[in-house]
């Protein structure tokens, strides 16, 4: 009756719990770094200053004459390219989620067939869950990265368009 608790727990289950614990620790650390990068006031001031400098440098005063057709055509063409590229990235992201879901289904299916005592079955389930969680997290990171690129592209296009219309 004096058996230590550790000996009652299957090593595979201990490992699985440890892996989840490490993952939680890493995620918390990541979240803390993200919060440190969150500097909305500084970013807003930085962008405001950059825009003001750009306005001064480029003399963004409305022109008396209308821009020529080629300018308009160029602006529309670039916007069209951006929209096509954005659609492709979002479509790729969606397909990646689908692939991950299919793979997750297979993994869980295989895990359900695991032989052994309940502790080992639980360990296998935990390990599979962690693997699937990390896969979804990678997909989510990629999607956020692509959304960032899309947002950045539209802002760059806006600046380019203004410069070509007013410059």
């Amino acid at each position: 009756m004096n058996q230590p608790v550790n000996e009652l727990i299957d090593p595979s289950l201990q490992d699985a719990v440890e892996h989840w614990s490490d993952y939680a620790k890493d995620s918390l650390q990541t979240a803390e770094v993200v919060l440190r990068l969150y500097t909305p006031v500084k970013d807003s001031l930085q962008i405001t200053q950059q825009v003001l400098e750009s306005v001064q440098e480029n003399d963004w005063t409305p022109s008396a004459t209308l821009p020529d057709a080629a300018t308009f055509s160029g602006i529309v063409s670039e916007l069209s390219d951006i929209q096509v590229a954005a659609l492709k990235r979002m479509s790729d992201d969606f397909n990646r989620y689908l692939d991950t879901s299919v793979e997750a289904g297979k993994l869980f299916g295989e895990t359900l067939k695991t032989d052994g005592d309940p502790q080992q079955q639980l360990a296998a389930w935990l390990e599979t869950s962690l693997k699937v969680t990390k896969a979804y997290q990678d997909d989510f990171s990629q999607q956020l990265s692509d959304l960032g690129a899309i947002e950045s592209a539209y802002k760059a296009w806006w600046q380019k368009s203004l410069e070509s219309l007013l410059g």
Partner: peptide, 23 residues
């Protein structure tokens, strides 16, 4: 590169994997 993006935004999008060459 682009005034409407913060330096970090430009560094991580424009300067790495921009959506199209024009941006």
């Amino acid at each position: 590169s682009w005034a409407g993006n913060s330096l970090l935004e430009n560094a991580t999008t424009t300067c790495m994997n921009p959506l199209t060459p024009s941006v």
